[in-house]
Simulated scan of single mutants.
Amino acid sequence: MTPPETDLTGTNAVGTASPAVLSCETPTVLTQRRDFTRAARGKRVAKSGFVVQMLRRPEGEETGIRVGYTCSKKVGNAVARNRAKRRLREVARIVLPLKGQSGHDYVLIGRRDATASLPFDQLLKDMHSALDILHGARK
């Protein structure tokens, strides 16, 4: 669906591309338990707001980025868990198309008293640095 001020070609009245129509590779969401448990055997980085697990999929499997989100009951009640997962989804939506690598699975795990309460800029910085560490950009 395109916003009302955008025509079907993806440009707005000014002639620039509409942000709603810009489409980078959107990550596929992990839904099956076996994908989460497989990713748990891969690399992991713990940051102040969340934990990121990464696993490179074997050759021959589908390409693209896949991402999963999880928050245990330790994070809080359903409202707190959902808020934490919404923030993790937004962080992944912003950062993974830029720094994520095709053929990898990423799992973001929310942390108690941190994911829902840290400033959003801090979560973005944490995600950037976690992906740099996971992909070997810096140690």
Rank of each mutant, 00 (worst) to 15 (best):
E61Q: 00
E61T: 14
E62N: 06
E62L: 14
T63C: 15
G64N: 04
G64T: 04
G64W: 03
I65Q: 08
R66C: 11
R66I: 09
Y69W: 10
Y69P: 05
Y69I: 11
T70R: 00
C71T: 00
C71R: 04
C71H: 07
S72L: 07
S72Q: 09
K73E: 14
V75N: 13
V75S: 06
G76E: 04
N77K: 15
N77M: 14
N77V: 13
N77S: 14
V79H: 11
V79E: 13
R81D: 00
N82T: 00
N82I: 10
R83T: 14
R83W: 12
A84H: 11
R86H: 02
R86F: 06
R87V: 05
R89G: 01
R89C: 05
R89D: 10
V91A: 12
A92S: 01
A92Y: 07
R93D: 08
R93F: 10
I94M: 13
I94Q: 13
V95H: 07
V95D: 13
V95R: 03
L96V: 04
P97S: 01
P97H: 08
P97Q: 11
P97Y: 14
K99E: 08
K99H: 02
K99F: 12
K99R: 03
G100F: 07
G100H: 09
G100Y: 06
G100R: 01
Q101R: 03
G103P: 00
G103L: 03
H104P: 12
